[in-house]
Simulated assay, not measured.
Amino acid sequence: MPYTRVVLLTLLALIAFAGNSLLCRAALAHTQIDAASFTGIRLLSGAVVLWALVVLRGGKRSGGGTWLSALALFVYAAGFSFAYIQLNTGVGALILFGAVQTSMIAYGLWRGERFTLLQWAGLLLACAGLTGLLLPGLSAPPLSGAMLMIAAGVAWAVYSLRGKGAGDPLQVTAGNFIRTVPMALLLSLVLLSRVSVDSSGVYFALLSGALTSGVGYAIWYSALPLIKATTAATVQLSVPLLAALGGVLLLQEPLTLRLLLASLAILGGIALVVLAVKRT
């Protein structure tokens, strides 16, 4: 049935998004691989898989994407990796998701969109939750890691906004991933003295690039035409929760009261904004 297919595709895509956080954190916290090498292997393997999917589908083997979008994708991937040296899985996913959604909401306001009182309340609640998560304290995440993840979130928002109406999603994403490869190589050359690679770290990076990024994005793009945009935004509220639960169950990370309260505030606030749009 079509409905069953939509649910399955959406669930697989959300698991893939959460899996990116889990794989990155596992690699950088429990293996010897450095962040620059993880970024490069992730982007290269993602580019190979996406290019292969384009070819198998019968699309053009070249073209698609832009250098500016590729730069935004690279900044996201690099910031994501370096941030996860310091951040737990759930905290990182929550900061990333909060930064992405807040940036896209702010862009909408700048473009002239008008908010209802309920939407303004939701936006303020989300900002308060993110501020509360970053306030100094025993369970506060490291500020430098949090700033890197916020930068990654803003870059992903820019990449997402630039991707609207840019053409065939799979073709464009493949082109952008391919363009990030020389950027990742340059980053590794700049940080050559810090290069550290082991088999486990490479394995996690390959899984992140080929499976949870390459295949995950392809699955998501298959689901998007079948669901409403507001529904797509709403279901992504589950990604930080899935990542946090995965970190607790698989990586033995703590689930703090601060993270729980911040999650409720950030995700609840964003839900108010998105659902209010859907209702109107």
Rank of each mutant, 00 (worst) to 15 (best):
M149V: 06
L148W: 07
L123R: 08
G165R: 10
L161P: 07
Y159P: 01
A146Q: 07
L170G: 05
L109S: 10
G132Q: 03
L117M: 13
T131E: 11
G122N: 07
G165N: 10
G137Q: 11
L125Q: 07
W120D: 02
R114F: 02
L123Y: 09
M147A: 14
L123F: 15
S160K: 02
S139P: 00
E113G: 05
L118D: 07
D168K: 05
K164A: 09
A166F: 09
R162L: 11
G132L: 10
K164E: 15
L134N: 08
L124I: 11
L138N: 12
E113T: 04
S139T: 11
R162S: 06
A140S: 15
L118R: 14
G108T: 02
M147I: 10
A146N: 05
P136S: 11
L143D: 12
A146H: 05
L123C: 08
E113N: 11
I150T: 13
L138I: 08
R114Q: 15
W110C: 10
P169V: 09
L117E: 14
L134F: 02
G167F: 12
G112V: 01
K164W: 03
T131R: 12
G153Q: 00
A121S: 14
A157M: 03
A151H: 05
L148A: 13
A157Q: 03
L118H: 14
P142G: 12
L109H: 07
G108K: 08
A152Y: 00
K164C: 01
G122V: 00
G129V: 08
D168L: 04
L135Y: 07
L125H: 05
A126E: 05
G167P: 02
F115E: 08
T131W: 15
L124Q: 13
T116R: 13
T116C: 04
P136G: 09
G167C: 13
R114P: 00
A157P: 05
L118F: 13
L109W: 10
A126D: 06
Y159N: 08
L161H: 07
L135N: 09
G165K: 06
P169A: 09
K164F: 02
G132C: 13
G165Q: 11
P136A: 04
R114M: 04
I150N: 06
P136T: 03
R111C: 11
A155N: 09
S144F: 12
L134V: 05
G153P: 03
P141F: 05
A126F: 04
S144L: 14
L133T: 03
L170Q: 12
A140E: 05
T131S: 15
A155S: 14
L109F: 09
C127W: 12
S160N: 14
L135C: 06
F115Y: 15
L135D: 08
L123S: 06
P142T: 12
W120P: 00
G167W: 13
A157T: 06
A166I: 04
V154T: 06
L109T: 03
A128I: 04
M149F: 01
L125M: 15
G167E: 12
L134H: 03
W156G: 00
G112S: 09
G165A: 12
F115N: 07
L161T: 11
L125A: 14
S144V: 12
